[in-house]
């Protein structure tokens, strides 16, 4: 069981306290109605599936309840870093 560092609690906790919430840094468009069909499709459905570094969102759902961002290696399953929502991409 992986240990994940929650940047809000500033503690490493077992992964069962957390829930994955998909790829990170996909901002909802400010004006969705102004988006073309193609752009909206990309926002809704198109996701990266990298081999290696992957930016994703996690929620400390059975802890502080906060969403945060993480860089995880999809090959080794190791977390490189975690950081608060709203902070720049690492």
């Amino acid at each position: 069981m992986i240990l994940i560092h929650c940047p809000y609690c500033d503690e490493k906790r077992p992964e069962i306290e957390f829930a994955n919430a998909g790829q990170a840094h996909i901002a909802r468009p400010i004006d969705p109605s102004g988006e073309s069909d193609a752009d909206w499709e990309t926002y809704l459905f198109i996701r990266a599936n990298p081999r290696g570094r992957h930016h994703e969102r996690w929620r400390h759902v059975h802890g502080c309840g906060r969403f945060f961002n993480a860089v995880r290696d999809t090959v080794t399953d190791k977390f490189e870093t975690t950081y608060k929502a709203g902070e720049p991409r690492r």
Binding site: A19, A21, R28, R57, R59, F67, A85
Partner: peptide, 13 residues
Amino acid sequence: LNMMEDYLQTEWP
């Protein structure tokens, strides 16, 4: 609740 927290925390903080 999870969905609402998601929007509240990450889209409209």
